[in-house]
Design a binder for these strands. Structure first.
Length: 269
DNA sequence: TTCCAGGCGTATC
DNA sequence: GATACGCATGGA
């Protein structure tokens, strides 16, 4: 990790980071593009304005303590993504996906924020997910706690326009607030056990559970299979995804997801 | 108008 | 265990 303090800002040097690849690809739903290579967003209630490209980034109005305690972890700066890409590149399809978007990293989000985000992601599109979470944050003036959300009703959440997902988010909040499900405990569990635990929540199936385990608990074995990844598996891995990548297959999934999605977009334009 | 969006719960076999 | 279907909302 290479950085320096510059007045009120942090200057970060990181070759394996492209903001569009991490902040605008459906991993986290709390970032808005404010210009070319520039974003504003949040990790829970900590705001950040970040800009940069070509291996140099500016985290505006960020002190060193916040950088080390929040953002270094959030952007997974302790992981060597060049080494991961070299490993993945033994596989032809992954090699292409890695070359296509070099700047991907796994965003390490807080468990509760990830759970809320991905419950809203079910049968939804990224633009609407972002809108729902922005309204939620704006309504409280901060990211709501499990207890705050647990005291709501389907009717009182009407302003979110979350549709059928309102009752799901209530169940998630109630189970977490009551202690029936302790996210910190789930984080300590093995992948399979944690997945079973999360799926006790109404509205959390295999895919949402994998997203929460991957993005919110750094379980890199979690491999969320959605409509896009289904296409990847059918097209490139008819005999199954290579076992050799099992420990970090969730990160491999990020490269594949972005690759297939962006290729499809380009075809449609 | 119809279809679809980073799925899930339920009913049915 | 596998498969079909409805589900809220809003953009294309």
């Amino acid at each position: 990790m290479n950085y320096e303090v510059s007045g009120k800002d942090i200057i970060l040097y990181e070759d394996d980071l492209v903001l569009d690849d991490v902040l605008d690809t459906g991993q986290a739903f709390r970032w808005n593009k404010t210009g070319v290579n520039s974003y504003f967003g949040y990790c829970l209630d900590t705001p950040l304005e970040i800009s940069g490209s070509g291996g140099r980034f500016v985290l505006k109005n960020t002190d060193e303590e916040t950088f080390l305690n929040v953002w270094a972890d959030y952007f997974d700066l302790g992981t060597d993504y060049a080494a991961l890409r070299r490993e993945y590149s033994r596989d032809p399809a992954l090699k292409e996906a890695c070359a296509f978007s070099r700047g991907i990293r796994l965003l390490r989000q807080p468990p509760w924020e990830a759970l809320v985000s991905f419950v809203f992601s079910s049968n939804n599109n990224i633009t609407r997910i972002k809108g729902i979470i922005a309204r939620l944050h704006e309504h409280y003036g901060h990211f709501p706690t499990p207890a705050e959300l647990a005291s709501e009703t389907v009717d009182s959440l009407g302003y979110l326009r979350a549709g059928f997902r309102a009752k799901y988010i209530l169940d998630a909040a109630q189970k977490v607030a009551s202690g029936e499900i302790c996210l910190e405990n789930v984080k300590k569990m093995h992948y399979e056990e944690g997945k079973r635990e999360l799926m006790k929540i109404c509205g959390v199936g295999p895919k949402v559970a994998d997203c929460v385990l991957l993005g919110g608990m750094y379980k890199t074995e979690a491999f969320p299979v959605d409509v896009w990844i289904k296409r990847v598996l059918e097209e490139y891995y008819p005999d199954g995804f290579p076992e050799e990548f099992y420990p970090t297959r969730g990160i491999a999934q990020l490269y594949l997801f972005n690759y297939i999605r962006k290729c499809r977009e380009q075809k449609e334009v």
